[in-house]
Simulated scan of single mutants.
Amino acid sequence: MVDADTVTRLRVVIGRLARELNATATGEGLTPTQASVLGLVTGRGPLGMAELAGLEGLNPTMLSRVVGRLDELELVQRRPDPADLRVVRVEVTPAGRRVHQRIRTLRTRAVSLCLERLPDEAARTLLDALPALEALVDELKVTKPDHDQPGVRRRG
């Protein structure tokens, strides 16, 4: 397969790309986590808090703080689930939808400008790699490290 140094380089570059893209949300006054939660709620909402915590990979306390802040900013609202009034669902507001769209536009513009400045061959290679990168994301969602056995990975 691939040597550990190459895999490390891939992991590092993906992390750096994510940080650079996340920085674009700061223009809207949101943290990267707040922007991510807003994006999930906009794209998939309304969502229950437990489902949102699982999708975002946040513990319930942290998620409650993030949603609370987004609610204060009137970007999302919490509503009781009509099927189970004990459950709170989070949905995007019109203002939240507009902020999310601005963040998406900024991120798309930033990537477009960078692609335009790259040599044609490098830009084409990146675009051709999209299916493989999407498959990698899908695998990362289902493959979890087994903390009991170093170096062993399990699915699920």
Results as ranks from 00 to 15, higher is better:
residue 55 L to N: 05
residue 116 E to N: 06
residue 153 R to V: 13
residue 149 Q to I: 10
residue 156 G to Y: 06
residue 144 K to W: 07
residue 20 E to R: 11
residue 49 M to H: 10
residue 68 G to T: 14
residue 57 G to L: 04
residue 125 T to K: 08
residue 87 V to F: 03
residue 50 A to F: 02
residue 139 E to T: 11
residue 100 H to M: 00
residue 86 R to S: 12
residue 27 G to H: 06
residue 6 T to M: 06
residue 52 L to D: 10
residue 98 R to H: 08
residue 72 E to V: 09
residue 62 M to K: 09
residue 45 G to T: 11
residue 5 D to S: 09
residue 2 V to Q: 07
residue 93 T to M: 02
residue 96 G to K: 03
residue 65 R to L: 15
residue 33 T to M: 09
residue 103 I to S: 00
residue 112 S to M: 01
residue 45 G to A: 07
residue 90 V to Q: 04
residue 68 G to M: 12
residue 97 R to D: 14
residue 7 V to K: 02
residue 28 E to I: 04
residue 138 D to G: 06
residue 112 S to K: 00
residue 21 L to H: 03
residue 87 V to E: 08
residue 127 L to Y: 01
residue 40 L to Q: 05
residue 126 L to I: 12
residue 72 E to Y: 00
residue 74 E to V: 12
residue 52 L to F: 10
residue 108 T to A: 08
residue 131 P to G: 02
residue 65 R to H: 15
residue 85 L to R: 13
residue 108 T to S: 05
residue 133 L to V: 15
residue 135 A to M: 08
residue 87 V to M: 04
residue 11 R to Q: 07
residue 98 R to Y: 03
residue 118 L to P: 01
residue 118 L to S: 02
residue 51 E to D: 15
residue 48 G to Q: 03
residue 105 T to E: 14
residue 84 D to E: 10
residue 150 P to C: 05
residue 129 A to W: 07
residue 64 S to D: 05
residue 125 T to R: 13
residue 129 A to R: 06
residue 132 A to Q: 12
residue 45 G to R: 03
residue 48 G to K: 00
residue 71 D to E: 15
residue 6 T to H: 04
residue 137 V to H: 11
residue 17 L to W: 05
residue 31 T to K: 01
residue 76 V to P: 06
residue 105 T to S: 09
residue 127 L to Q: 07
residue 67 V to L: 07
residue 30 L to D: 02
residue 86 R to Y: 10
residue 137 V to N: 05
residue 16 R to A: 13
residue 30 L to S: 02
residue 35 A to W: 06
residue 63 L to R: 08
residue 89 R to F: 00
residue 145 P to N: 01
residue 139 E to R: 13
residue 56 E to R: 01
residue 43 G to L: 08
residue 117 R to C: 03
residue 136 L to S: 10
residue 125 T to Q: 13
residue 31 T to R: 02
residue 5 D to I: 09
residue 41 V to W: 06
residue 15 G to Y: 11
residue 5 D to M: 07
residue 82 P to I: 06
residue 149 Q to P: 00
residue 19 R to F: 08
residue 82 P to C: 03
residue 36 S to Y: 12
residue 142 V to D: 09
residue 73 L to R: 10
residue 145 P to T: 05
residue 130 L to M: 12
residue 154 R to M: 07
residue 41 V to R: 02
residue 107 R to H: 04
residue 66 V to A: 11
residue 122 A to G: 00
residue 13 V to D: 05
residue 124 R to T: 15
residue 136 L to W: 11
residue 124 R to N: 04
residue 141 K to Q: 14
residue 39 G to H: 12
residue 12 V to E: 10
residue 65 R to W: 12
residue 149 Q to A: 04
residue 116 E to W: 05
residue 25 A to M: 01
residue 51 E to R: 04
residue 65 R to Y: 13
residue 145 P to A: 00
residue 102 R to S: 08
residue 103 I to G: 00
residue 4 A to G: 03
residue 148 D to M: 05
residue 13 V to T: 14
residue 26 T to P: 00
residue 155 R to G: 04
residue 127 L to V: 15
residue 141 K to L: 15
residue 146 D to S: 07
residue 41 V to I: 14
residue 14 I to D: 05
residue 152 V to P: 00
residue 39 G to V: 11
residue 12 V to F: 09
residue 122 A to D: 14
residue 111 V to F: 04
residue 60 P to F: 04
